[in-house]
Computed example of a mutant assay.
Amino acid sequence: MDKIEEFFVVYKNAAWNKDVNQMVGLYHENVVIFDMWEHGFQKGLEAWSLEISNWLGSLGDEKVKVDFEMISVQEKSTVGFASAVVSFQAVGLDQTILRGMKNRISLGFIRDEIGWKVVHQHTSAPIDSNLQVLLDF
């Protein structure tokens, strides 16, 4: 990626097209992931690639529509940071929205001779005092 902003477009397209390689290509080999699902923590591109492959491979006929809001990007020559609210919607063959959710996402990037890569990703969702997820931002 030449610009950090490209992450949001590539991620969205990779999810919709179930393109594991395109999505994996966004991440650095030493990536650290703090995720909200199953393992909660992944270290290294090999482990994260398996998670991405399992996620996109589990969709069957469904597609995933991803949208980003409230995108904020800060970058210097070799280090960058971004945050956003991300929504995921499962879309059926008839284009019906089957389910959906929103998360917050924070991303740390490093730039090398190839371009920008995600080296740290953290997803979360706020909860109320009853430990219920608040998904409407």
Rank of each mutant, 00 (worst) to 15 (best):
D2S: 11
K3G: 04
I4N: 01
E5M: 07
F7M: 06
F7K: 06
F8R: 03
F8S: 01
V9D: 11
Y11T: 01
Y11W: 12
W16M: 10
W16A: 10
K18C: 03
N21Y: 02
Q22H: 14
L26Q: 05
L26V: 02
E29T: 10
N30A: 12
N30Q: 13
V31D: 03
V32H: 07
V32S: 12
D35Y: 09
D35T: 07
M36H: 09
W37N: 10
F41S: 13
L45V: 03
E46Q: 14
W48L: 04
L50C: 11
S53C: 06
W55N: 11
G57P: 05
L59I: 09
E62M: 13
K65I: 01
D67C: 06
F68S: 06
M70A: 14
S72T: 09
S72N: 12
S72C: 14
S72A: 15
K76C: 09
S77M: 10
T78E: 13
T78D: 13
G80W: 00
A82L: 08
S83V: 03
S87Q: 05
V91G: 11
G92V: 04
L93K: 14
D94M: 00
T96Y: 04
I97W: 03
I97A: 05
I97E: 02
R99I: 00
M101W: 07
K102C: 05
S106M: 10
I110K: 12
I110G: 05
E113V: 04
W116N: 02
A125V: 15
I127K: 10
L131S: 15
L135T: 14
